[in-house]
Write a protein that binds this DNA or RNA. Structure first.
Length: 443
RNA sequence: CGGGAUGUAGCGCAGCCUGGUAGCGCACUUGUCUGGGGGACAAGGGGUCGUAGGUUCGAAUCCUGCCAUCCCGACCA
């Protein structure tokens, strides 16, 4: 993508309303634009990142055996009256009336709808287990939206719903999601710690929040320090195997959010391993048994011919929130530092003194070759001064930067800089191309 | 919803107290010089001062209502 052709509204100054660094950088780097309190337009650069995060989550869901579908944002109030949540959910739910005066709502979550769809088709234990998910916009009319996309009212969420014949099956489904989440977050360069969590209004008796540690996190969290650096299960995990042991390894050590915190238990951790910090919740998984299947009569016939309610779980990932979370975890004074797996572009290419002989040609040549190799390239082909181009490239956080200038060209080299380490190398254009192709292959 | 604050050009702000031609920096346009870390100079363009009333000869400025946005708290992917 050439900068001259895209839409990248960079801000030099920090908008006054943004208080935390991720929000400030998202506005400054032209990722989002607020349109109402807690509601954002996704600008081209932000959308690219959103799509990449979404795709990682999608791939890890699919790998774990979940099936993608898409449910609407608008739901009928009747469904929610069936589960009893229409009155329970309170003002957080945005209620709408259509032209026939029918009560509708903008979905804050989809348990009712998926249960309704499921029960219409699945009647036998032979069709179980099933895990259905979608990635769709949600609306929750938060009392106080804040921190940009971290607590917006409209947000993109992946929500998965599992259906099993019994509790043992449901726990196996739960375990698959538990481990798939760890893989997904790791692919985004995040260290997410699963923590025992309150089940909240959804109900049930088994729940974990996935927390990334950040000073600006909304909740206080307490855990054993070893959990932070525990490696993810890995993409070669066999999701058909019994995963209980792997889950147990990751739940044996103490980890809890403040509402579940037990000071006495925490005190048993060796003092040098007691980690008390703040965290951002990026995922939340629940097992809630028959809560919805009973209320909405979602039953299947078992092998013995007897009908029984299915056991369900739900599994959410805040896709749009993850942008904020990743930036909180990965930035410096100059701007965002995207992990390459979610970066809007793999590499920023710029020509200095672009009207000097050979510079524009060398840029175009490299631009074409990088793209032909499958890399996403942000080519700053504008007449901006060098300092301005450098600052922009740092701000938007592209993992690699290639600088083509007349001085280097005289020596037959271009400059390759790593955003994260700051390391600079002078390479021939061919060698730079080769190295960049390698980095793309390893993510 | 309780407490606190703010609305003046795309962004950041001054002006308001003490009413009298709406200003500064960045950004934008044009030109010249520049050209490896957010350039310099010159000349320009852009604002019903959130909104509706009120007071006044006269309101960005004083008063009242409303709206919007933000901060602290309780709630949440």
């Amino acid at each position: 993508m050439k900068r001259s052709r895209t839409f990248l509204p960079i801000l030099k100054e920090t908008p006054a309303e943004a208080k935390i660094v991720s929000h400030q950088l998202m506005l400054r780097a032209g990722l989002i634009r607020q349109t109402s309190s807690g509601i954002y337009a996704w600008l081209p650069l932000g959308l690219r990142v959103l799509k990449r995060i979404e795709q990682i989550v999608r791939e890890e869901m699919n790998r774990a055996g979940a099936i993608e579908m898409l449910m609407p944002t608008i739901q009928s109030a009747d469904l929610w009256r069936e589960s009893g949540r229409y009155d329970d959910y309170g003002k957080e739910m945005l209620r709408i009336t259509d032209r026939h005066d029918r009560d509708l709502l903008y979905g804050p979550t989809n348990e009712e709808m998926i249960t309704d769809i499921f029960k219409g088709f699945v009647k036998s234990y032979k069709d179980l287990p099933k895990n259905l998910y979608h990635i769709q916009w949600k609306f929750r009319d938060e009392i106080r939206p804040r921190f940009g996309v971290m607590r917006g009212r409209e947000f993109l969420m992946k929500d998965a719903y599992s259906f099993d014949l019994d509790e043992a099956g449901a726990r196996a489904s739960y375990n698959r999601m538990f481990l798939a989440y760890l893989n997904a977050f790791a692919r985004m360069g995040l260290k997410a710690v699963p923590m025992r969590a309150d089940t909240g209004p959804i109900g049930g008796d088994l729940s974990h929040e996935f927390i990334i540690l950040a000073e600006t996190g909304e909740s206080a969290v307490f855990c054993h320090a070893d959990l932070v650096d525990m490696p993810p299960p890995g993409l070669d995990l066999d999701f058909d195997a019994d995963l209980q042991l792997l889950v147990d390894q990751r739940t044996a050590l103490y980890a809890a959010t403040d509402e579940m915190h037990d000071e006495a238990e925490f005190a048993h951790i060796p003092a040098d391993k007691q980690l008390s910090a703040r965290g951002i919740e990026v995922g939340h998984i629940f097992y809630f048994g028959e809560k919805y299947s009973k209320a909405m009569n979602a039953a299947v016939v078992g092998p013995d011919g007897a009908e029984r309610f299915v056991h369900m779980g739900s599994y959410g990932v805040g896709i749009s929130r993850l942008l904020g979370g990743i930036i909180e975890a990965s930035h410096d004074d100059n701007g965002i530092i995207w992990p390459q797996s979610v970066a809007p572009f793999d590499v920023g290419l710029m020509g200095l003194n672009i009207d000097k002989p050979g510079v524009a040609e060398a840029c175009e040549d490299l631009y074409a070759k990088l793209q032909a190799a499958g890399l996403e390239v942000f080519f700053d082909d504008t007449g901006e001064r060098p300092g301005s181009k450098f600052a922009t490239c740092d701000l938007i956080g592209l993992p690699w930067r290639v600088v083509v200038g007349p001085k280097g060209l005289d020596k037959g080299v271009v400059e390759l800089k790593c955003r994260k380490t700051g390391e600079v190398e002078e390479l021939t254009p061919e060698a730079a191309l080769k190295k960049l192709i390698q980095t793309r292959a390893t993510i």
